[in-house]
Design a protein around this nucleic acid. Structure first.
Lengths: 224, 224
DNA sequence: ATTTTTAAACTTTTTTTAAGGTTAATAGGT
DNA sequence: ACCTATTAACCTTAAAAAAAGTTTAAAAAT
């Protein structure tokens, strides 16, 4: 789970990051409205925690424009104001929930879980892709009678390929989504994990191939 | 058994917690209607004790919206009012039982048992999983002639594993369900209890294994 | 007296790193 | 155009390093 925090009060931003990482969320923090909007536009996040008063672009504008751009990432708005008009414009602008400062860490987590549940939990359980099956509740890769477990990073990598059949996915994107935004993993790390995944795929007897497109990235070929 | 208490009178809330923990229930207490709703929405509780008059969102609304969200957790409504209309709207809104303040601790426990029995007791008594049997009314783990008693946390942990055979369950979820929403238990607590459970499982001669999937969680492998 | 937490030493698995082998694109010469 | 040398990108694997999990014993809490 990757969460974007857009909050210009540095202390609060740090506290948020702290709370979330304790709960094993991955976080990116930005302090400026415009920058936050650009980050959010990438669509890679599972939720956005958005302050209303921000330099350069306020929270309402960000939420409104994101929705206009078909970015449906759940948004949890954050503000010091507890006035009804604020609350209304927040929800009108496209936010999914609203929370006033100060708040208890538990409340934050509860609300975050509530807004990510609806959209996030759809992908669960069994996905069939090409000639194999991946069960995300057991992290098992299966074809026929043969089956093998994937570990954490292999799982993330496979999910990424499954989510975009036949599409070329750049190494940059793989690093961002599997290792995290600020990791210093290099292309060799990706290569190694692609190799691990290929081995497991072939171990279960799958014909599915992860092909490399030089300089562009990788793509998993869907064989029906 | 985890119970959510939503009650803004701090003294009463404390008393409730006291009564319940004496009976070995695990409790989370919140003082606000909206927060209570979010907690309840998690669906992790075995019952909810819900005051009617609450800040931000009243008990009727909470019950009604929970049912609308397909949360079927049994609800015991609590109120100072003893009027019939109240009683009716309480039950209409989706509550399972209704109790007026003040009340005797025994009455609370009795009603709580009554509403949790129907839905909760399906799993009760003897459950066979893989090569062993667990009797949840005596908390005994049995295989063949060998048998051993589980304590409270071991029991909760085992029930969680039994409820989702072969699925990977994250440490986060284990902490939430076994230690409670707001506990500050860490991963080492989980590790220790998994270890205790493994020892007891192997003591009775069971082949069933609790495997760890690093960074993902634990899973109990069902050996038929 | 039992349950629960904590801490420490130990084991296992994951993750990174690095090196040597392949492959495919590019450049240069004919 | 064609062949070949060069080079950069990619593949695979072993093994080193880092991180996560296991198991105890003992302290703390109930």
């Amino acid at each position: 789970m990757q969460i974007l925090i857009v909050e210009d009060e540095k202390r609060l931003a740090d506290a948020l990051r702290e709370i979330l990482s304790e709960q094993k969320y991955m976080t990116d923090v930005v302090y400026d409205g415009k920058v936050g909007f650009d980050y959010a536009l990438s669509g890679i996040y599972d939720a956005i925690i958005l302050d209303i008063m921000l330099p350069h672009k306020n929270g309402f504008e960000i939420a409104y424009e994101l929705r206009k751009n078909k970015i449906e990432t759940p948004i949890l708005m954050l503000t010091a104001k507890d006035t009804i008009p604020d609350k209304v414009s927040g929800l009108n602008s496209g936010a999914d929930d609203y929370m006033t400062k100060p708040f208890a860490p538990e409340e934050l987590i509860a609300r975050l879980k509530a807004i990510t549940r609806r959209k996030g939990e759809v992908i669960l359980d069994e996905a069939t892709f090409g000639d194999f099956t991946f069960n995300s509740s057991t992290c098992q890769l299966t074809k026929g009678v043969k089956s093998i477990h994937l570990n954490f990073k292999e799982t993330e990598l496979l999910k990424l390929f499954i989510s975009r059949p036949n599409a070329i996915i750049s190494k940059e994107e793989i690093i961002t989504k599997v290792w995290g935004y600020d990791s210093d993993a290099g292309s060799n790390n990706v290569e190694a994990y692609v190799s691990f995944l290929r081995r497991k795929l072939s171990f279960i007897g799958s014909e599915t191939e992860i092909k490399s497109a030089k300089k562009l990235g990788y793509r998993m070929e869907c064989k029906p």
